[in-house]
C-alpha cells in the first residue's frame, strides 16, 4: 500500500468521524443529506460482499467493517434517533434515489469485468459511489449557509477521492498492467463533482470567512 492510498483511506475515515461527531455530540444532522447517506450504505453493502469470500488483510477487513457500520448507523441516527431526526432538512433533501440507483444498475449490467452477480454488483457500487454525493451537493446549494462540520465533511470526502487518483497514478507506474478503466473513470467523475465545492471552499479559507455557495 502506498502513501496516497493510506492517506486517502485515513481522510475517508476522518470524514466519517467528523460526521459522527456532529451527529453524536451536537445531536444535529442539519445540512446532511439522508439520501446521500443511504446511497453510501448501499455502496458499501454491495461492494463489501467479498468480506465473506476473500481475505485481503486485517486492515482491509477492519476498514470495511468500519465503513459498513458507520454508514448504517448514520442512516439510523437520521431516521430514528429522537433528537437527531428533528434537525433533518427533509423538505430540502428532495433528490430521488431511483434517479441515481437505476441508471447505475443498468450501467453495471452493461459495463462490468465479468457477468457474475458479484462483479456486476461491484461495478454498480463504483458507479453509485461516483454520484452518491449529488443529493448532498444539491442540499448544500439550497442551504447555502453551511456550518463548519458539514463543510469539513464534504471537503474530506473530496480529498479522499483526489488522493485515490494519486494512488492509481502511482500504482500505474509501479505495478505492471495496472489498468482498470471502470475504477478510474468512475473515480474521476466522482472527483470532478467536487470541483465546484472545492473552489468555494478554498475561496472561503482565503477570505477567512464562512463557506457560502452562490445561489
Amino acid at each position: 500500500m502506498n502513501i496516497f492510498r493510506l492517506a486517502g483511506d485515513l481522510t475517508h475515515l476522518a470524514s466519517v468521524l467528523v460526521l459522527l461527531l456532529k451527529i453524536h455530540t451536537i445531536k444535529s444532522c442539519a445540512g446532511i443529506s439522508l439520501k446521500t447517506q443511504e446511497l453510501y450504505a448501499i455502496v458499501f453493502a454491495t461492494r463489501y460482499l467479498d468480506l465473506f469470500t476473500t481475505y485481503i488483510s486485517l486492515y482491509n477487513t477492519l476498514m470495511k467493517l468500519i465503513f459498513l457500520g458507520s454508514s448504517f448507523s448514520i442512516v439510523w441516527y437520521i431516521r430514528k434517533h429522537k433528537i437527531v431526526r428533528r434537525s433533518y432538512d427533509k423538505d430540502q433533501d428532495t433528490f430521488r434515489h431511483y434517479f441515481i440507483v437505476l441508471p447505475c444498475f443498468v450501467l453495471a449490467l452493461i459495463i462490468h469485468e465479468k457477468f457474475t452477480v458479484r462483479e456486476v454488483l461491484w461495478a454498480f457500487s463504483l458507479y453509485l459511489e461516483a454520484v452518491a454525493i449529488l443529493p448532498q451537493l444539491v442540499l448544500l446549494q439550497r442551504t447555502r449557509n453551511i456550518d463548519n462540520l458539514t463543510g469539513q465533511y464534504v471537503f474530506l470526502l473530496g480529498a479522499y477521492r483526489a488522493l485515490y487518483i494519486l494512488n492509481w497514478i502511482y500504482r500505474y507506474f509501479t505495478e505492471p498492467h495496472f489498468v482498470h478503466w471502470i475504477t478510474w473513470i468512475s473515480g474521476l467523475v466522482q472527483t470532478l463533482l467536487y470541483a465546484d465545492f472545492f473552489y468555494y471552499y478554498f475561496q472561503s479559507m482565503k477570505n477567512n470567512g464562512k463557506l457560502q455557495l452562490p445561489a
Binding site: 485481503i56 488483510s57 482491509n60 505495478e175 505492471p176 482498470h180
Partner: peptide, 10 residues
C-alpha cells in the same frame, strides 16, 4: 512487483 486488482482497495 506483480499486478493486482483494485479490489484490494476500499
Amino acid at each position: 512487483k506483480t499486478s493486482k486488482s483494485p479490489k484490494d482497495e476500499l
